[in-house]
């Protein structure tokens, strides 16, 4: 190979490798939404599907799964947040409604966002919600309590050894964030 040819070959190879590097950089970002999709499909990390409309399912009265309801407030948000029932025995295929209550204990208006999570995480694919207060912005007037219902069903396709699960909501304070967006 003479010098010129070598330089050409080098340049070709360099660009190919650079293309791989750029691709891998992009992949990191591409993976974020892809990860969301994979997670909600396989129920990795307890992500919950967003609410979808109610559908009729075969009710399996022979099985009972006990669902626990948990409430968490992130950081130091002045919010009293609780579920009306802590535990419910449910039949797969049957729809149930459980109310969560949140009370703003401060003098200021609060904006929060609730993030749901299911444990054990791999059961989250089987919990389907018809109504939910998650992900959307929730506003709380000072010293007022609000009722927020969750309507859900457990898919009868759930594994036979699933007997217990926990549905938890964590409220994050996004008051500042939502104000900066509005202003």
């Amino acid at each position: 190979m003479d010098n010129k040819e070598l330089q050409k070959a080098n340049a070709r190879l360099v660009w190919r490798i650079v293309a791989i590097a750029v691709l891998m950089f992009g992949l990191g970002f591409a993976i974020a939404p892809y990860y969301d999709a994979v997670c909600s499909y396989f129920g990795i990390s307890g992500r919950v599907n967003e609410a979808s409309s109610e559908q009729t399912m075969q009710v399996d009265a022979s099985r009972e799964i006990s669902v626990e309801f948990v409430s968490v407030v992130n950081g130091q948000m002045p919010l009293k947040f609780r579920a009306e029932t802590s535990k419910l025995k449910v039949n797969p295929g049957q729809y149930y409604t459980v109310n969560y209550y949140a009370e703003n204990t401060s003098d200021k208006k609060l904006v929060g966002r609730a993030v749901p999570s299911i444990s054990p995480a791999w059961l989250s694919a089987f919990l389907k919600k018809a109504e939910c207060f998650c992900f959307s912005e929730q506003e709380f007037e000072p010293h007022k309590e609000r009722k927020m219902p969750v309507r859900f069903v457990i898919d009868p396709a759930v594994q036979a050894d699933a007997k217990e699960m926990t549905l938890s909501y964590t409220f994050f304070d996004i008051t500042e964030k939502s104000q900066t967006i509005k202003n």
């Binding site: 791989i20 590097a21 750029v22 691709l23 891998m24 950089f25 992009g26 992949l27 990191g28 970002f29």
Partner: peptide
């Protein structure tokens, strides 16, 4: 080449 860009992205 395969992984440094992923770290940079993260």
């Amino acid at each position: 080449i395969a992984v440094m860009p992923v770290f940079a992205g993260a």
